[in-house]
Every structure is written in structure tokens, then in C-alpha cells.
């Protein structure tokens, strides 16, 4: 009985706090992305030939995002039925946007106006079918071009 209460309690906390965290994170992402919109980002490997580049430097950033309890349970129930795991989709999307924003912020600090050849790698932390979080690493070449 007590175990059931703890379980339900954790789901409740996970749902409430997870949702709150997510809303806050999405709001902060939207603001920072808007401020960095003038930096051009591509995953092209070569620069346009008519550009004069004054500096080029590697920029990289990473982020680890945790699953909340509600999402873990929701996803394990959902994976019995198959289909889209919406809970994980928003999680990976947030992590990816966060890592990209951090790369752009680093590029801005270097005075760059474009990031070329942006690559994004994902890794799962934790063991087997019980992931504790996902790690995202984004990197690219920050260039200052006229």
C-alpha cells in the first residue's frame, strides 16, 4: 500500500515538476534563439567561395538532460503499444536546441557571424532500457566573414 502511494506520489511530482521545468526551459530557449537569429548556421562543409573569412575556430557545447519520473513511466507504457514516444521526442528536441544555442552563444562571444558544418551527436547515459538522461554534443566552425 505504502509502496503504491510512493509510486503515485513520484508520478505526481514528476508530472508537476517535469511540466514546470519544460515550460520554463522552452521559454528560455525561445528567448535565446531569438537573440541569436542573426548568426547563420548550416551543416554545409564548405564555405561560399565569394566570402572573405577573417577567422575560423572550433566551437563546441554539450548538455545532459534528465528524464522525469512521469515521462519514464509514460514512455514505458507507451512502448508496449508502439507508436511515437512523445515524451522522449520533446526531451531530445529540447536538448538539441539547448546544445545548439550554447554553440551559438560561444560563437557570438568570439565575434563570429556564422557557424559552419554544425554536427550534433547524441548519447544515452544510463544502462539498457532505463536511461537516466541523454547527452547532446553540438559543434561547428565559427567563422567571421564579410
Amino acid at each position: 500500500m505504502i509502496e503504491l502511494l510512493i509510486f503515485l506520489g513520484l508520478i505526481g511530482i514528476g508530472f508537476g515538476a517535469g511540466r514546470w521545468n519544460e515550460t520554463r526551459h522552452l521559454r528560455s530557449l525561445a528567448e535565446r534563439e531569438a537573440a541569436l537569429r542573426d548568426i547563420m548556421v548550416t551543416n554545409l562543409r564548405t564555405l561560399p567561395e565569394n566570402w572573405t573569412v577573417t577567422r575560423a575556430e572550433l566551437v563546441a557545447a554539450n548538455v545532459v538532460i534528465a528524464l522525469d519520473y512521469f515521462k519514464t513511466i509514460a514512455a514505458s507504457l507507451k512502448s508496449l503499444l508502439g507508436g511515437n514516444l512523445g515524451a522522449f521526442e520533446t526531451l531530445t528536441d529540447r536538448a538539441r536546441r539547448e546544445a545548439t544555442v550554447r554553440v551559438l552563444e560561444e560563437a557570438r562571444a568570439l565575434g563570429a557571424n556564422a557557424v559552419w558544418n554544425l554536427r550534433i551527436e547524441t548519447a544515452v547515459l544510463g544502462h539498457g532500457d532505463k536511461p537516466s538522461g541523454i547527452e547532446l554534443i553540438a559543434y561547428g566552425t565559427a567563422v567571421r566573414a564579410e
Binding site: A17, H25, G133
Partner: peptide, 17 residues
Amino acid sequence: LKNIVGGELKGYTELLT
């Protein structure tokens, strides 16, 4: 604990950086 409430795992982010 973070796995209950979700959000960024700052300790791990730093570690990986």
C-alpha cells in the same frame, strides 16, 4: 533525484565538458 523532476543534469554537463 533529478530523474524524478526532470531538467538539466548540470553535474553531468560539466563532467562531459
